[in-house]
């Protein structure tokens, strides 16, 4: 299996594409952080007993007054910025991935139904999608959040409501192409039910373009979630994401205490940058027209 991958054209092209390598390395680092982050830092920033108010607003270690225990300094409660960032990255990344999976599931299902059955069902689903696309996604998410309240689950709902459309449209388009092909007609002649045709024949053949969309969407979702949290309608203060960390530090940003918000910001940037680099590579690799 591994051998086959190393000999594949995918791997061959990956090795020759610097930005793909950089993107993959960044993503790999973030996967490690998300999986093992809490083991890497001494402090659990949300365990109040581990916080010491005397250590509040320590600058990063390389500035005068820095404390070697707090590499990137501390915030107003004496919380280690590095530890907060690592915990916050987990929240941001998991929300991004979970919301992507929900969007993908719902959008793909609706797209398959619309494309396969056509007619009124298609018209209804696609008009809702069009309507949705005529508003900025940030605005829709903001509106939903203010209607349903804050919380991780609410953020997921808002992001899914924003994100399903792109899957539905893509899948519907590919489905229309696939059902014209002779292998789908052959399945009809073989006597398969519509449900089986969709599951066995159409679905596996419309998934490839979704890989690219899903990858890039994780990045987009991380940004939207950060914006929502920054505006105070995202995750609760007990589970701060990177966006909320930026907001918390933002109040004191201009008093010279820049590290509390700048480092989480850099973290978001690095994560989304890595995802997009890798997404671009996938787009080129998986696009049959460029072959």
């Amino acid at each position: 299996m591994m051998q086959a991958f190393l000999a594949s054209q995918f791997f061959f092209n990956w090795r020759r594409n610097l930005s793909a390598i950089i993107g993959s390395v960044i993503i790999a680092i973030f996967i490690v952080i998300v999986a093992f982050g809490p083991l890497m830092v001494a402090q659990d920033p949300y365990d109040l007993t581990q916080l010491n108010l005397l250590d509040s607003y320590k600058p990063p270690v390389w500035l005068p007054g820095g404390d070697p225990r707090y590499l990137l300094g501390t915030d107003g409660q004496g919380r280690d910025v590095l530890a907060s960032i690592i915990y916050g990255t987990r929240v941001s990344a998991l929300i991004g991935i979970a919301a992507m999976l929900c969007s993908c599931l719902i959008g793909t299902s609706l797209g398959l139904l619309a494309g396969f059955y056509g007619g009124r069902l298609d018209a209804i689903i696609m008009r809702i999608a069009d309507l949705q696309l005529s508003f900025p996604s940030m605005l829709i998410a903001l509106f939903l959040m203010s209607a349903v309240g804050t919380g991780v689950d609410k953020v997921l709902i808002a992001l899914t409501a924003v994100g399903w459309v792109v899957y539905a449209r893509t899948v519907r388009g590919s489905t229309l192409g696939e059902i014209e092909k002779e292998y789908v007609q052959a399945a009809r002649v073989a006597g398969l039910t519509n449900a089986k045709i969709i599951r066995r024949h159409v679905l596996p053949n419309v998934l490839t373009p979704l890989i690219v969309i899903a990858t890039v969407q994780v990045g987009t979702f991380i940004l939207i979630e950060a914006s929502l949290s920054f505006l105070g309608v995202g995750v609760p203060i007990t589970q701060p994401s990177l966006g909320l960390l930026i907001k918390n530090g933002f109040d004191v940003l201009f008093s010279g205490l820049w590290w509390t918000s700048v480092f989480p910001g850099l973290m978001i940037m690095a994560m989304v940058f890595g995802i997009n680099l890798f997404g671009d590579f996938l787009r080129d690799e998986l696009n049959p027209r460029l072959k």
């Binding site: 002779e182 292998y183 052959a186 073989a190 066995r200």
Partner: peptide
């Protein structure tokens, strides 16, 4: 039963 024209499109590439 039926035999189709296009030997490339008439077989599901993922089966």
């Amino acid at each position: 039963q039926m035999i189709f024209q296009d030997p490339f499109a008439s077989l599901n590439p993922r089966q």
